[in-house]
Nucleic acid binder design. Sequence first.
RNA 1: GGCCCCGUCGUCUAGCGGCCUAGGACUCUGGCUUCUCAAGUCAGCUACGAGGGUUCGAAUCCCUUCGGGGCUACCA
Length: 500
Amino acid sequence: MQLKDSANSRIRSAHMDKKVKVRFAPSPTGDLHVGNIRTALFDWAYARHTGGTFLFRIEDTDTTRVTDEYIQAAIDTLKWLGLTWDEGPEVGGDNGPYLQSQRLDIYATWAQKFLDQKDAYYCYCTPVELEARREAQRAANVAPGYDGACRDLTQEQISDYKAQGRDAVVRMRMPDGSTTFVDQIRGEVSFDHKFVPDFVLVRGDGSPLYTLAVAVDDILMKVTHILRGEDLLSSTPRQIRVYQAMGIKLEDYPLFAHLPFVMGQDNTKLSKRNGEVSIAWYREQGYLPEAICNYLALLGWSPGEDRENVTMKELCELFTVEKVHSSPARFDMKKLEAINGDKIRALTLDDFLAWSLPFLEKAGVITGTQPEIDLVRSALPIIQERIVRLSEIPQMLKFLFVENFEVDADCISKITDDASKAVLKRALKELEALSQWNHDSIEGALRSSLIEELGLKPRVAFGSVRIATTGSTISPPLFESMELLGKEASLARITAALAL
RNA sequence: GGCCCCGUCGUCUAGCGGCCUAGGACUCUGGCUUCUCAAGUCAGCUACGAGGGUUCGAAUCCCUUCGGGGCUACCA
């Protein structure tokens, strides 16, 4: 099967008249991770860029590893990220069902057809036998793979195996020759069939494998572009083999584009060992969907023109497969944080409030009453440029809500010396006299008394007041914080500090 | 081992034969600003894996080599 440039251009031109349909087809054997999401994002962006269809399909043919919880989690994660699909679970479509476990009869029909056509055959080798032969191949330094033992079984041999009660798998016959296809990112890629052994389509128990289901579904669901991880690159010849057996015309083959990996810090495939990979974790940590998508989009792709910050809308406008490159990228948490900080700063007050409340409630800082929400709302502007993750909000605003206020243990010694006591005493006196309580009046009073009259350095003078009122050396701007805290509480805290 | 993919600052990238004494961003370092922390701003550090070609000219094209990764399942 040669699928060289001329064929590629035939497929491409055939596709020009067709509406683009891109699919994201994860196998939910765990929470969706960073790599899955980058793939989903590119799939989605390309579909949106071309005005095509984004199809979401669940590949749950491995029933021992896929669970309903993971399937639901995958659906939720995509929704949370805003990667909405046009065909798939929950929304339906003309090519469903979209769970492979609900399409078993379809795969069985095709497998039978391949058997009838002699494209596939029953293989009675047991896993133990296969493993032993592979071991021997390795020892003999021969490419391991199925040796074709059951390719041309006689009736006798078959009855013999059946009599032994052996299960048979359905195996695809790989003809001699090679498969060449044009990857839209990597260019022409070629595999000699010597290194693509006959592969299993249907298990001994009659259930289909990925190799069968993925190819059948992409064709039946009329997928035009397959953008997926590069780990699937070497399985492409098998997929193309199934298209052939299905009798699909060359121009109806989907176009392949294998995306580069997202690697961990230690330059191995991202896993739990070398960083947080579950999107659920990022959600809990207070990363915004738009920040995650923006950052992930930069892994293997670039908007160009020295630009990095893009909205989801801009991503859709700018994204093309041609600009994706072929080399793997390393995941960098620091940069994600920087982008998350940018996105948080760009939030409107209403949006920021909406994102903040769940974190404050979960941390037990507020219960959700209207007065609390009002206070949060007025406090958010002074912390907006000080956080990179939403999960930092409770810590920053806690001082406004705690009932039994206490100064951080490691800060107490910094305000118990004589000099600090003098500062606090004077501050208390000045503040008590204030008739107006806002950050201007507070600042005016403290500046004229502590800085001008006592001649103290601002950082020294305000530092003591900061610790006394907010409990820490690090806080939002002091005068605004005191305004939000209120006169009564501010004075009470300074008084309490003097008693330490 | 075999097959396949990949190789520009520490990291993500721009670059697609002359605009490159290689640009941007993150990180790091130093300065400014400053009530702390941030934010903002200025500056600095640091890269075309190596070796051969092709060419008047190469980060850009070719070859070799080295390095990294993936696959090699009745996983996907």
